[in-house]
């Protein structure tokens, strides 16, 4: 049956190319959406696990004031971690960040940098209340919240997922229709042969099988081709994206995620191809 199906595809190369092309576009977009979702999710998790509130002390704040705030936060059940960054360590961080700019390094000393506390809460809603409570503590100069970044990333992630799924859904529907039309045309073109097969005693499965397999092969080859293209592009662009994103781990994509996207994509391809052929058979073939 496989060789018969492949022969059918070979004998109508333009129809086969059209089906594979439109399905490949669909799966390419689906793969890109999949990889983007995974990258943004990695970034989201990264920011979520970073210190989410930074409490900067005034440069003239005394050690007792800092210790009091630190103790208050350690006793707070909403807070998951508290890390003290003294002036000297702040200078080290500053130096590390600006190691390529000696002029900036010359101008800054530990005295003018503030000591700070980096804290994380168990959940995002507690961030704002904890921040407002320490805002007016003695010695505190400024409280910076990172929840904004997490919120923005979360919105991006939701947007990519919803927008991506909608767009891929639209493309998938278009692809199904095109495969239905192509397989339907083939069925119509073979009505005479199908009639003969029926009369000589061919089973329904023998007649329908090659058409179903044709749709499945369109889906399979398209999903495979789209995956190869998208992974090639991903691997090619990974160094540039890593450089652009800095410390945020957008890439590389984990091998498990690559396998997951491949599996889901191929399974979807087979399902879409099968469904489209099945619809065409129900619509165009009366046995």
């Amino acid at each position: 049956m496989l060789s018969k199906t492949l022969t059918n595809m070979r004998r109508t190369p333009y129809q086969a190319a059209a089906a594979i092309l439109v399905l490949t576009i669909t799966f390419f977009v689906a793969d890109v959406v999949g990889f983007a979702s995974i990258s943004f999710y990695q970034a989201f998790k990264y920011f979520e696990t970073r210190p989410q509130v930074l409490i900067f002390f005034k440069t003239d704040a005394v050690e007792d004031q800092i210790n009091a705030v630190q103790q208050q936060l350690k006793d707070d059940t909403r807070v998951s971690s508290v890390t003290y960054v003294p002036k000297e360590q702040a200078l080290d961080i500053y130096k590390d960040l600006n190691k390529n700019d000696p002029v900036l390094l010359e101008l800054v000393t530990a005295d003018i940098l503030p000591a700070s506390l980096e804290i994380s809460t168990f959940d995002l809603p507690s961030l704002k209340s904890v921040a407002s409570e320490v805002q007016n503590s003695p010695g505190v100069d400024e409280v910076a919240l990172r929840s904004d970044i997490v919120d923005v990333l979360n919105n991006w992630l939701t947007g990519i997922r919803l927008g991506g799924i909608s767009f891929v859904g639209l493309l998938a529907a278009t692809s199904i229709l095109i495969v239905v039309i192509i397989v339907g045309m083939k069925i119509s073109g073979k009505q005479y042969e199908i009639k003969i097969l029926e009369l000589i005693g061919a089973s329904h499965w023998y007649i329908q099988g090659p058409f179903l397999l044709e749709g499945v092969l369109y889906g399979f080859f398209s999903a495979l081709l789209a995956y190869i293209i998208s992974v090639t592009l991903l691997l090619y662009s990974t160094p540039y994206i890593i450089q652009f994103a800095g410390e945020v781990p957008l890439l590389p994509t984990a091998p498990l995620s690559l396998i997951l996207i491949f599996t889901v994509s191929v399974l979807l391809g087979v399902m879409i191809g099968f469904s489209a052929s099945w619809i065409a058979l129900k619509r165009f073939l009366k046995l």
Binding site: E198, I200, G201, A202, S203, H204
Partner: peptide
């Protein structure tokens, strides 16, 4: 189909 396989036409 089984019937038709028994009848050559």
């Amino acid at each position: 189909p089984h019937l038709r396989r028994q009848i050559g036409s």
